[in-house]
Computed example of a mutant assay.
Amino acid sequence: MFGALGIVLTLLMVFGGYALAGGKMGVILHALPFEMMIIGGASIGSYILSNSGAILKETIPSLIRSFKGPVWHGQDHEDLLCLLFQLLRMARSSPVELEEHIENPENSEIFKTYPRILNNAEAVSIIADTMRSASLNYDDPYQVEDMLSKRIALIKEEQMHVPHALQSLADALPALGIVAAVLGVIKTMGSIDQPPEVLGEMIGSALVGTFLGVFLAYGLVAPIAQRLSAVRQDDMAFYDVIKSVLVAGLQQHATNLCVEVGRQSAPEHVRPSFVSLETALREIKRAA
C-alpha cells in the first residue's frame, strides 16, 4: 500500500509541478514512447546480460515482495518461539521421540501446528539440521553458533542478489538516459536546416531521455531496490531468532530462558510481548 502511494505521489509531484510551472506535457508525451524504448530496452537487455538465470527468475517475485512487505510478522515470531520451546523440551525429556519430528517434519504434529513455518523449507531445515547435529553429539555451543552464522550469512547473500542487481540497474539508468539524449542530439543535428521552433522541439525531445534516465533511477528503481533490501533484512531476522534459541539450548539454559533469549533477539516491531508469549507457552504446557 505505501509502495503504491509512494509511486503515485512521486509521479504526481514531478509531473504536476512541471505542468503548473508552465511546462508543455505534449513534448514529453510525444518523445516518451521512443525514449522509453531506448532506455527501457537497453536497461532490460543489460539486466539480462549481467545477471544469472536464477536472479532473473526471482526478479518479478521479489518486486512483488517489495510491495507486499516481509514474509514474517509478529505472530510468526511467537509461533516460532512456541515451536522451538516444544522441540527443546522434548529433546531433554525424550530424545528418541524428538527424532521422529526432526527427521520427518512434514508428518510432525508439532510442526503441523505452525503451517507457515512448516511451509518454509529453509527455516525447517535449519531447525532440523541443528537439532539432529546435537543428537549426534555435535553440541559445542560455540561451534554450532559459528556454523549457524555462516549458514545464515549464505542465505542472506542469496537473498540480497536481486536488491543488488536492481541497485546496479538504478546506477546505470542515468547513463542510458544520456545515451538516449545523445541519439536525440544526433537526430537534431541531422535536421539543422529546419526552423528554430522545429529544432527546439527536437532538442526538448532529446532532453527527455536524460530526464527519464535520472527519474527512473532515483525516483523508482533505487527506492524499490532499497525497499526490497529492507524487506529481506526483516525476513532474515527470523533465522537469527532460531539461532539464538538453539544455541541457548545447547548451553543448557532452562527452556523458558532459551525462548526468552530468542524473543529479545527479534526486531522490536515484530517482537511478541513477554505476556503474550508466556500465555502461549502456558497453553502449550496445559495441553501437554
Rank of each mutant, 00 (worst) to 15 (best):
F2D: 12
G3W: 10
I7T: 11
V8R: 04
T10L: 12
T10W: 07
L12W: 14
M13L: 15
M13C: 14
V14Y: 07
G16N: 04
Y18E: 09
L20K: 13
A21K: 07
I28V: 15
P33K: 00
M37D: 05
I38L: 15
I38F: 06
G40K: 08
A42G: 05
S43L: 15
G45A: 11
L49A: 12
L49K: 12
A54P: 00
K57H: 01
T59W: 09
S62C: 01
S66M: 11
K68C: 08
P70F: 05
H73N: 14
H73C: 09
G74T: 08
G74N: 06
Q75N: 10
H77M: 04
H77C: 06
E78Y: 01
E78D: 00
L80H: 03
L83N: 06
L83A: 05
L83S: 00
F85C: 08
Q86F: 09
Q86C: 13
R89V: 10
M90R: 12
R92F: 09
V96K: 13
E97T: 13
E109K: 15
F111A: 10
T113L: 08
T113G: 15
Y114Q: 02
Y114I: 11
R116P: 08
N119S: 14
N119G: 12
N120Q: 11
V124W: 01
I126G: 01
D129S: 11
M131L: 15
M131A: 00
S133I: 05
L136C: 09
D139I: 10
D139S: 13
Y142K: 13
V144F: 02
E145I: 00
D146P: 02
M147A: 10
I155A: 07
I155Q: 09
E157H: 05
E157T: 09
M160H: 01
H161L: 13
H164L: 13
Q167P: 00
Q167F: 07
D171S: 12
A172F: 03
A172P: 00
L173Y: 10
P174Q: 14
P174K: 11
I178S: 10
L183C: 09
I186K: 01
I186T: 03
K187T: 11
M189H: 08
Q194L: 15
E197I: 13
M202A: 11
I203D: 10
S205Q: 14
V208R: 07
G209C: 07
T210G: 08
F211G: 03
F211I: 04
F211L: 14
L212Y: 00
A217D: 03
V221E: 08
A222H: 15
A222W: 08
A230H: 05
R232T: 03
Q233G: 00
Q233L: 12
D234H: 14
D234W: 02
D235W: 04
D235F: 02
F238P: 03
F238V: 03
D240G: 15
I242C: 00
K243C: 01
L246T: 01
A248N: 00
A248L: 02
G249T: 01
Q251H: 06
Q251E: 12
Q251L: 05
H253K: 14
H253S: 10
H253E: 12
A254L: 11
T255S: 11
L257I: 15
V261S: 02
R263E: 07
S265E: 06
P267H: 09
P267V: 04
H269K: 13
R271H: 04
P272D: 00
P272H: 00
P272L: 01
S273F: 02
S273T: 13
V275C: 03
E283R: 14
A287P: 05
A288H: 12
